[in-house]
Structure formats: C-alpha cells, structure tokens
C-alpha cells in the first residue's frame, strides 16, 4: 500500500522530461525526412509515432509490474 494517492506519487517530472524530448524528437525527425525532398518520407514520422505508442504500452507494463518480480530469480 502507498502512503499517498497516485497523482502525488507519480513521477511527473520524469514524464514531463520524456514528453518534451519525445516531442522535440518528432519535430526534428519530421524536418529531417521532409525538408527539400521531392519524395518526403512522412511515413517514417507516422511509424515513429506508432513506435512511441507501442513504447507507451510497454512503459505502462514496466511501470505497473512490481520490482520484486525482477529482483528475485536466477543469477
């Protein structure tokens, strides 16, 4: 059990930094694949957004699984 509600124990700072870096990455990637190109590869940006979506699902999974599950085991 936690001693405070979810909103207070969630690491908003970490989330904010990740969000800012992710947005910056998408903007620069869009520029890198579209600028001056006759055939802009916008599909790469869409794919990157999809990868972020998949990463988000795995982030939630790793966020929810208790660390005690990993700390016990072989090795």
């Amino acid at each position: 059990m936690f001693d405070r509600p979810f909103v207070q124990r969630f690491d908003w700072c970490l989330f904010g930094l990740m969000f800012l870096l992710g947005c910056m990455g998408l903007v620069v990637l869009y520029s890198a694949v579209t600028a001056g190109s006759d055939a802009p590869r916008k599909l790469l940006v869409v794919r990157q957004v999809l990868w972020y979506g998949a990463g988000g699902v795995l982030l939630v999974f790793f966020f929810c699984v208790s660390t005690s599950c990993w700390s016990n085991g072989p090795m």
């Binding site: 059990m1 936690f2 001693d3 405070r4 207070q8 124990r9 969630f10 690491d11 970490l14 989330f15 990740m18 972020y52 990463g55 988000g56 795995l58 982030l59 939630v60 999974f61 790793f62 966020f63 929810c64 699984v65 660390t67």
Partner: peptide, 16 residues
C-alpha cells in the same frame, strides 16, 4: 521507454 517505465516504477515505490 521501457527503461523510463522502470525508473518511474522505482520512483513510485519510494512511497510504499
């Protein structure tokens, strides 16, 4: 992102 998920997990468990 998985690594950040792990970090968030550890961060949250400080309040257990």
């Amino acid at each position: 992102m998985m690594c950040v998920g792990v970090l968030m997990n550890v961060s949250m468990r400080r309040f257990l």
